[in-house]
Design a protein around this nucleic acid. Sequence first.
DNA 1: TGCACGTAACTTTTT
DNA 2: GTTACGTGCA
Length: 759
Amino acid sequence: MDYIDTLNEPQREGVLNTEGPCMLIAGAGSGKTRVLTYRIAHLIQSKGVDPFNIMALTFTNKAAREMRERIEKVIGPEARNLWMGTFHSVFARVLRAEAHHLGYPSNFTIYDTDDSKSLLRSIVKEMQLDDNVYKPNVLYNRISSAKNKLIGWQEYLANPELMGDDAANMRPEIGKIYRTYSLRCFKSGAMDFDDLLFNTDKLFREHLEVLNKYQHRITYVLVDEFQDTNLCQYNIIRKLASVRENVCVVGDDAQSIYAFRGADISNILNFERDYPDLKIIKLEQNYRSTQNIVQAANSVIKKNKAQLPKNVWTANEEGNLIELIKAVSDNEEGRLVASSIFEEKMQHQLKFSDFAVLYRTNSQSRAIEESLRRLNVKYKVVGGLSFYQRKEIKDILAYLRYTLNQQDEASFRRIINLPKRGIGDSTVDKIVVAANDHGTAIWDILQNPSPFVGGRAAAPIEDFVAMIKRFRLETERKDAYDCAFEIAKGSGLLRELYEDKTVEGLSRYENVQELLNAIKEFVDDKEREDKSLGSFLQEVSLLTSNDEDKDKDPDKVTLMTIHMAKGLEFKYVYIVGMEEDLFPSQMMLSSRAELEEERRLFYVAITRAEKRLFLSYAITRYRFGRLKNCEPSRFLEDIDSGFLRMSNKVGGGYQSTPSHSSGNSSYAKTLVSGIKKTITSKPVAPKPSAPAAYTPPADFVPSNTANLQEGMKVEHPKFGFGMVIQLDTSSPDRKARIQFDNFGEKTLLLSFAKLKIHN
DNA sequence: TGCACGTAACTTTTT
DNA sequence: GTTACGTGCA
């Protein structure tokens, strides 16, 4: 029971107060994951609750995995039996078991966003609507938010307000598209991400005996990141917990950043209303950050009107002031951030993994990446295109999915002519139209296509059908790996990729091999009972880009969006792109609520930092392919200026001209209020404690390095003097290992490094 | 039907 | 700076 002693008073209460409804309002860095894990451990160890009876819901696979690992450390392998996972994965499992109640096959396909959007695209085409007006993105979001609010297509069509909105927006057909989309998904035996929740709610609503079963099986419900739940999720939680009412939710309204996809903070307020006996516990002590960071964050969030009162504080050291870096361009911003990371790492003997660069949009990563590469700083970009979203992977997966479920229209469209077998768009359209006209399945048309398609396509269709039937036989006999291998080979996809000897072709082939390895790993997992292809696909559909973190080298700077950073912490954090229209995003300025969400996003970003926080902005930036002038973000003025100072890193390429200054915070104050007016604000001198960085002479002119030889003396604008100890000219990227007098040994790319040769 | 090329449109966040 | 789509030709 020793772990209880390590907790503060409210934390302990959060762990021990297990019975009845309970809400933990957990400030940033207040140790909520600790409370959740100990609470579960306590339930099992001290209260004797069977892990099978506990359901713990998170929003990301990563959070679920981490929590499971932490619980396992406390209570051992029994933790494996917990119902722990994301909302989507846990209820996908439930639906898989209960699908027949809803008329779905138990091996239903899960459509990802791309699948959904392409289905929507073809529906719009069939309905002969203008695809410039009915864009897949718009439709997807509209339908998604309806489902999140438990509005099915029937309710949508019957809702005068929604229909009126659509009419006013010149998109009166959305309701009908929603209907067609839902019916087509159903016919395809497919659910999109939102359906996993929407249909769970439907299942519990329409089949009380099923609900009852789960209500009695699950005696304790825990929900992480409660502020991110939408109405649909909230309903599911309530229904599950309505018998025992042992429901514990943990959240922080100040960190609600997913309203755009249906998260509803009012769930926090409704929770109090729905459970009058609710026990509310506030975790307000921050263990993560310095006083300066905590207070700066508080000063920002204070500007929001909508929030629950709380007082986040810390007993940690005061720490450094937050530094503001100003750059003339996005590229220079990258350079300044990269060189700052480099220098801080050197000066304080940190690891690359102590640093994170956070941005509002993924597209901002490129400039940062370039600069980090030039300084040989190792980094990883989190997010972006996931492995499972690559074309070659989706192609194989579509084959696997179609083999299991011939009703799946999205997969059908993807593979029917892949590799090319002479079944073109016109034939596919004819088949789909025929199926819809006759109310039959596409698969049925394929078995007997002659009345509907041209004679030329008949033979390849027959081959296709035979091939799929062959694959289907495999799935009945073999495990996921053997099936997948046979299908990859039998479809011709593997051969086609193998024959492509271009660089991209090679990497695509390797990716497919990697997919097959992943399936092999899945099959070889001893803990796993269900090794079928269907079970693999189910799991894979719910993976995202940040679930692939099997990086061999963990010591890297992390680059990611602020959204992805929620729940993480780093010693040093750089928030880049602090500019109007970028952060806050121009798309979020139409209402106060949206602006407040952006501000909460800023709050989340600030509170990721443990020791030091840097904010940067650029005066010009390439956006939409053209150079744009930028203004500093209004959020900079939200920070109490006493916590802020101008960095000594200044723009203008590499030459820095440190000038005299007072270096106190009143100066910072003038700086901040003057940010908007002045283009050239004076930098504050570096802290006396910091060793002075090498300052190159103003007339630094790099030499041509074509004739660089080992043993030569060189000067670098950042690292000063050094000697070339090794040259690598084996690849087009010529590199030199240089022993610098004051900065140690570096390997520099000659095409980037500015070196002056001294003879 | 398939391929190659040019053009346009788009970049908020994610299970 | 990217990708997806449309057009025109074989």
